[in-house]
Design a protein around this nucleic acid. Structure first.
Lengths: 350, 350
DNA sequence: AAAACTTATCGAAGCGCTTTAATAATAGAT
DNA sequence: ATCTATTATTAAAGCGCTTCGATAAGTTTT
């Protein structure tokens, strides 16, 4: 079988030294345009590509990025983190890094089950998506490996983070409703102790304030203990029952709760969007197939992954680069729950 | 910062040569138990781990496995391939391989967009999940890299494959229904040109034959052009309308079509499972949240990934190992669509 | 007791690359 | 023309590991 060419073969054929080829390869040092050209030509002819491990050995770099997920993300229906991964992988290609993907268990103990790439020091940087133990983060820090956190906010830690812009999301939602002439806009907040959920609530409040609309407390549900479908259902029920006048529009802090609202409204025969308009957040698959389909805020997972990766690469190349906290813009997805569509909308499982 | 220890440090401290340490590390050659012990102790003390790239360079192996997916798998709702990946990753850990995950586009052209790990020859073997262009497969073959195919059957190719046992699946379904005293068992086949779908149909036919039940043609739908929800809906409609006597049970070749049946039955007020029992195939998420929840055949994705990985590792280590075609057993998941459950079943989005 | 294995250990070469330091060639300044 | 700075090229060392072949020591066979 034909051995793949090495840098030596290139050098011989181009009639230059190894070093020169290497310099051409890495765009370094002094090489005359003429020889640069010549070498490049030979590289092409031979289909030469430097071997990862050789280069890694010489540079004391692996060329790999570790991507850590908690395993429950895989069991979720929504391919949320999967898309983040995809964005990261895409960006990694540009920088010629490989991603090593690993899952860790939630109840993870760093002294038992460290990801292999950490034990073997086989990564130049780490991406962490979602909530993981701070013990792990501290451990990685102690190894002096740069980290970027995705969709996980650790106030007290000093790492770059990439989060979606929750605040902006609910603002967009409010603006959309106002454009549709709504002035009576309620809100279902869910569990406010969760940072993201809290931000969404603040976005809503602020948007109303900016529009000069005063909050109507009876249209705001803030006492749910979670953000599930059932919480949305119950919140909608409470809200309808307890307030004498009804809002004309309602924003739920996530799609799950919005779907809960939809269920309740369907039961008591409140028409969406005619009687009440409804907006969710997250743009989960079920938001599309809901009846009516749900206007919602789409989170750009792909961009989150990509941005995190490019940030990490910067951290690796420019050592002690300043950390920063990036917010990825969200977008409003208008569907039937706010605007009666004349167009046919796909609502079935394909 | 403290440099991580090399094999040299171990050798020095254990007062042996580099070679000896290497032999201990790889469990090779002649090393007396005494020195083996001694070296092992030092390795532990120093927390030594061989560096990937150095070893890779010396062995001319990357220690990596490439995992190729077509990108549309990522946009699917079902985390089918994600779970396969997880199974593969788990198994990879045991054999000390890393997985490099890459997606390729469906309309992939090997001369433009080859996965990087192929270009760089940075993998020792390849796992392919789902249907990819045979051009790609041929290309990888030409590089002499072992391949194992998952959930993709290429009759004319000579690679090991890992598929789920479709045939067994519909047999289990039939057996389950027979145990429930059903004798009039219909079938909705979908698009029989698809190999898996065809196998399922054969499994059904054979199971009935084995049970001594003769096929009733009017209860079998084989003229649908696809396997979507709408096909299930239409098939159920046709079946009910065209046959004078009704079956007491129905098997659909996948959950999507079963859900289509459910929709139609709900419309015409046929009760499941009282009037007619229903079984799907695949165990997608929606099968669980369907009303009633759907009895179905679960595909063991995790095992598929794991088995594929261990098979691939064998291919790598034992060169020209004989290829084999592995069928991963499926399991019956009993839910409300065949058996009225007294237990509370989770049907809501959590 | 010599010959012939078997077992144990190690030195050295080599894997394919990067990089440093030395040298050579060219250009610019005096 | 001479000296200096700049540009171009390369030999050689080294990254951390495996492995071949040499050597030494211990065992068995004759």
């Amino acid at each position: 079988m034909p051995q793949r060419p090495t840098i030596k073969d290139v050098a011989k054929r181009a009639d230059v030294s190894l070093s020169t080829v290497s310099l051409v390869l890495n765009n370094k040092g002094y090489v005359s345009p003429k020889t640069r050209e010549k070498v490049a030509k030979v590289i092409n002819e031979l289909g030469y590509h430097p071997t990862r491990s050789a280069r890694g050995l010489a540079l004391r770099k692996s060329g790999n990025i570790g991507f850590i997920l908690t395993d429950d993300h895989f069991t979720q229906t929504e391919p949320f983190y999967t898309k983040i991964f995809l964005g990261a992988e895409f960006e990694a290609q540009k920088h010629n890094y490989y991603i090593l993907l690993t899952t860790i268990t939630k109840d993870f103990d760093p002294f038992n089950s460290l990801p292999r790439f950490l034990i073997e020091k086989n990564v130049d940087g780490i991406l962490i998506a979602g909530q993981v133990s701070t013990v792990l983060i501290d451990y990685i820090d102690s190894m002096n490996i740069p980290i970027v956190l995705i969709d996980f906010d650790v106030e007290n830690h000093k790492h770059s983070t990439v989060l979606n812009n929750n605040y902006q999301g609910t603002q967009l939602a409010v603006e959309h409703l106002i454009n549709l002439q709504h002035r009576k806009i309620g809100y279902i907040a869910g569990d406010l102790s969760h940072p993201s959920i809290n931000e969404r609530y603040q976005g809503y409040r602020n948007a109303l304030k900016q529009a000069g609309i005063t909050l109507e407390k009876s249209w705001i549900s803030i006492n749910q203990k979670d953000t599930k479908v059932s919480n949305g259902y119950n919140a909608a029920k409470d809200l309808i029952k307890s307030s004498h006048s009804l809002p004309t529009a309602l924003i739920a802090a996530n799609d799950a709760m919005a779907i809960g609202c939809l269920q309740y409204f369907s039961e008591i025969n409140i028409k969406v969007p005619d009687d009440i308009a409804l907006i969710g957040f997250d743009n989960i698959e079920k938001a599309l197939s809901a009846q009516p389909s749900l206007t919602t805020i789409d989170v750009n997972k792909f961009a989150m992954g990509g941005t995190a990766m490019s940030t990490l690469v910067e951290c690796i190349t420019e050592r002690n680069k300043q950390i920063n906290h990036i917010r990825i813009p969200v977008t409003l997805v208008v569907r039937e729950s706010t605007v009666k569509s004349v167009m046919q909308v796909e609502t079935q499982l394909s």
